[in-house]
């Protein structure tokens, strides 16, 4: 279990005041948020979808500026948004990940099918441990709990794609293919999640047709 040291908290930036917040959402993002707000009776319920938009707009993670912008746009406090964002494992609060986030499931069925040996292989191949990023900023590897694709164990998730069952060879091929992809797949995941929540008519309004 991670222990938070007092020294870690000392360097923590203070929450920006509303007048200090820069609004960085693109026009498209603002229109998407407008449509999503129509889905709920109150603004607060749009926090999760709005955090997904922010994660896309801020390049695959949520720096404190992103939290502040979400708070301002939804009329909530910085602390509330930060509190919500840190609860969920798919939001990366504070620290960017590599361009490609490799999430290896080691939960029960995957464990039975050798996920730990597979993870050892990926870790030694990339030269990093759980939660670390390669020096070139390409890959981050994370251990995740059940992805619910146990029939394909051992399984891993990269962006919006599941891969399974995978062995050392197929993982090598996947990593090789990802090396040539320079656009961050973490951003693509956030975008896919936002698009999946917008109806066809919402999307038409966003694109202005």
């Amino acid at each position: 279990m991670d222990v938070i040291q007092i020294s870690d908290l000392r360097g923590r930036p203070r929450a920006p005041r509303p007048e200090e917040v820069n609004l960085n959402f693109s026009e498209k993002a603002v229109r998407e948020l407008e449509q999503l707000l129509n889905h709920y009776p109150d603004k607060k319920s749009a926090i999760l979808p709005c955090l997904w938009i922010a994660q896309r707009e801020y390049g695959g993670y949520l720096p404190s500026e992103a939290i502040a912008e979400v708070a301002l746009r939804l009329d909530r406090s910085y602390a509330e948004i930060e509190g919500v964002a840190t609860f969920y494992t798919m939001y990366h609060v504070g620290h960017p990940t590599g361009k490609h986030l490799i999430e290896v499931c080691t939960c029960l069925s995957c464990h039975l099918c050798g996920a730990y040996r597979l993870a050892d292989h990926i870790k030694s191949k990339l030269g990093i441990d759980w939660g670390e990023t390669t020096p070139d900023g390409m890959f981050t590897i994370e251990e995740v709990e059940c992805l619910d694709a146990c029939d394909r164990a051992p399984v891993l998730q990269i962006s919006d794609q599941y891969y399974g069952p995978v062995d050392d060879k197929t993982v090598d091929a996947i990593l090789e293919k990802l090396k040539s992809e320079t656009s961050p797949s973490t951003v693509r995941l956030a975008d896919e999640i936002v698009q999946a929540q917008l109806h066809k008519r919402d999307q038409e309004k966003v694109s202005g047709n």
Binding site: H39, P49, Y88, T89, Y91, Q197
Partner: peptide
Amino acid sequence: YVHLGAGS
């Protein structure tokens, strides 16, 4: 409407 979670 579809609403997506974020890992929990």
